[in-house]
Computed example of a mutant assay.
Amino acid sequence: MRVLVALVALVAVAVAAAGPARADPSPDDGRLDWPLRPRPAVVRTFDAPTPKWQRGHRGVDLAATAGQPVYAAQAGTVVFAGDLAGRPLVSIAHPGGLRTSYEPVSPSVRSGQLVHTGTVVGEVVAGHAGCARAACLHWGAMWGPASRADYVDPLGLLAGTPVRLLPLRP
Score class of each variant (00 low, 15 high):
V5F: 12
V8I: 13
A9M: 10
V13Y: 12
V15T: 14
A16G: 12
A17V: 15
A18E: 10
P20M: 06
R22V: 14
R22H: 03
A23T: 05
D24C: 06
D24P: 00
D28I: 08
D29Y: 08
G30D: 07
R31V: 04
L32K: 07
W34D: 01
P35Y: 04
L36A: 05
P40N: 03
P40E: 02
A41D: 14
A41M: 11
A41P: 00
V42N: 06
V43H: 09
D47L: 08
D47E: 10
D47S: 05
D47Q: 08
A48D: 02
P51E: 03
W53Q: 04
R55Q: 04
G56L: 01
H57C: 03
R58A: 03
V60I: 08
V60K: 05
D61S: 06
D61P: 02
D61Y: 06
L62A: 08
L62N: 06
A63F: 09
A66M: 07
A66S: 12
A66Y: 06
G67Q: 12
Y71M: 11
Y71C: 10
T77H: 09
V79S: 02
V79T: 11
V79Q: 06
A85N: 13
V90E: 02
A93M: 03
A93K: 10
H94T: 01
R99I: 08
S101L: 07
Y102C: 04
E103P: 00
S106H: 11
P107S: 02
V109H: 02
G112D: 00
V115D: 03
H116P: 00
T117Y: 02
G118R: 10
V121F: 07
E123V: 11
V124P: 00
V125C: 04
V125I: 14
A126D: 12
A126E: 12
A126T: 12
G127Q: 06
H128G: 00
H128W: 05
A129K: 15
G130T: 09
G130M: 10
G130F: 10
R133D: 09
A135M: 12
L137M: 09
H138A: 07
H138W: 10
A141E: 01
P145C: 01
P145D: 11
P145Y: 00
A146S: 08
A146G: 00
S147R: 15
A149Q: 00
A149G: 03
D150P: 00
V152K: 07
D153Y: 09
L155N: 01
L155A: 07
L155G: 03
L157S: 00
L158D: 01
G160S: 14
G160P: 00
T161G: 01
V163G: 05
L165V: 11
L166E: 12
L166H: 12
P167Y: 12
R169H: 10
P170W: 14
